[in-house]
Design a binder for these strands. Structure first.
Lengths: 133, 133
DNA sequence: ATTTCATTTCGATAAATATAAAAATGATTA
DNA sequence: TAATCATTTTTATATTTATCGAAATGAAAT
């Protein structure tokens, strides 16, 4: 019951749902999410650690950046069933779509100051794993 | 997104999950739930109104009591998918089972002072609608 | 080595939520 | 009609959670 209510609590925050929605598109560093959500970097970092703690997302270090992404498979049955449901609900959502548009138009040279041209290029060409609903 | 996060927020409270678990067994008045959860009646009433607001439960007036029960079908797609999942997760949960034992052993003459013998009898013989998971 | 950048942790504050006590409501019973 | 009971609403308080700014960390670039 604790596990159940904890997971629902984690999902019961709009900014965390916005992050999940963004990570559905592609993996992101903290700078990028901060830029779109217009929150303090420390706040975004906190949300990310909460999402990571319950196993919804994972991170990996890449040069200066910590790159976050959705987990593709979960060791938890509940999340495994819940996530496709959450992702499907984020379709056709106004806020979710607006965030994705903002993500598409983001200026990586400005948002992540130290990213060089080749890095930016590989991000733009990143293949998004399509999650089937 | 607001609807989604609101629903998760509602489900992200242990006492509300406990109430859902109890109502899975049979319909209940506020006194009974109060007795099992050991919360103030006003607090229980508040939780019930929150659950009712999102459409998870419904109420009906019966003499002095307001009898709450789980909705069997929902006008909301999300809840329709979510509820069976929640109910299945409440199986084999320690707290959930302990609450059900407490419910089985409850002394209705004491908890609901003004209930007469025939009322108590019909409650004990109430047929629980089995929800298929 | 020192500076710069990305991120996290810490500390403080603000906002939201859960809770209970008291008062109000409404209905039943004596 | 007055008293009792079940419930809800209101008000106040306690707790939790979200947020930010500042400081700390750590790694890369100069």
């Amino acid at each position: 019951m604790d596990e159940l209510s904890e997971l629902f609590k984690v999902l019961g925050d709009k900014n965390r749902l916005r992050i999940i929605n963004l990570l559905k598109q592609r993996s992101l560093c903290v700078c990028e999410i901060t830029e779109i959500l217009k929150l303090a970097p420390s706040t975004v970092s906190r949300h990310l650690s909460i999402l990571k703690h319950v196993g919804i997302i994972k991170d990996k270090k890449d040069k200066k950046w910590v790159v976050y992404s959705l987990n593709v498979c979960y060791d938890n049955v509940l999340i495994t069933v819940l996530m496709p449901l959450v992702l499907s609900q984020l379709k056709d959502d106004e806020q979710a779509e607006s965030d994705l548009r903002k993500l598409a138009g983001i200026d990586l040279n400005f948002v992540c100051k130290s990213k060089d041209a080749s890095e930016i290029d590989s991000i733009k060409n990143e293949v998004t794993p399509k999650v089937s609903i």
